[in-house]
Amino acid sequence: MSAIPLWAYVLVMAGVTYLVRMTPMVLLRRKIRSRFLRSFLRYVPYAVLGAMTIPAIFHSTASVASAAVGFLVAAALSFRGRSLITVAVAACAAAYLAQLIIGFI
C-alpha cells in the first residue's frame, strides 16, 4: 500500500469540515427539535476536548513528569478563570522549568 499524499488528507479534512458548516446554512432552514440531539450537540465540544487532552497532554513534552507539572499549572490557572493565553504560556514555562530541573538532578 503506497503512502497517502498530504494533499489528500488536507482535502478530506477541509472538505468534511466545510460541508458540515455549509450544508445547513444552504439547505436546511428549520430548527432542531429533538431535545436529545440538541443536548448531544451542546456537549460534543467538551467531550472531544476532554478525550483529546487527557491522556495526550502527558505525552506532549519531553517527559511525563514535566508534562504533569505543566498540566497542574494549566488546571489551577483555568480553575481561577485565567485567559487562554495566560494558561498556555504558564503551562509551557512550567513544563520547561520542570524539564530543566529533571535534567539537573
Binding site: 443536548s39 451542546r42 456537549y43 467538551y46 467531550a47 472531544v48 476536548l49 476532554g50 478525550a51 483529546m52 487532552t53 487527557i54 495526550a56 497532554i57 506532549s60 513534552t61 508534562a67 505543566g70 498540566f71 494549566a74 488546571a75 490557572l77 483555568s78 480553575f79 478563570g81 485565567r82 485567559s83 487562554l84 494558561v87 498556555a88 504560556v89 504558564a90 503551562a91 509551557c92 513544563a95
Partner: peptide, 30 residues
C-alpha cells in the same frame, strides 16, 4: 508542545465549574 492542550484545559475547566453536564461529560470522555 503542551501549549495547545493547556488551551483546551482552559476552555473546558471554567465551563465545567459552572455546568454539571459539561463536568460529567468531560469526566466520562477523559
Amino acid at each position: 508542545g503542551i501549549a495547545i492542550y493547556a488551551m483546551f484545559v482552559a476552555i473546558v475547566i471554567p465551563q465545567a465549574r459552572s455546568d454539571r453536564g459539561v463536568l460529567v461529560c468531560a469526566a466520562i470522555a477523559v
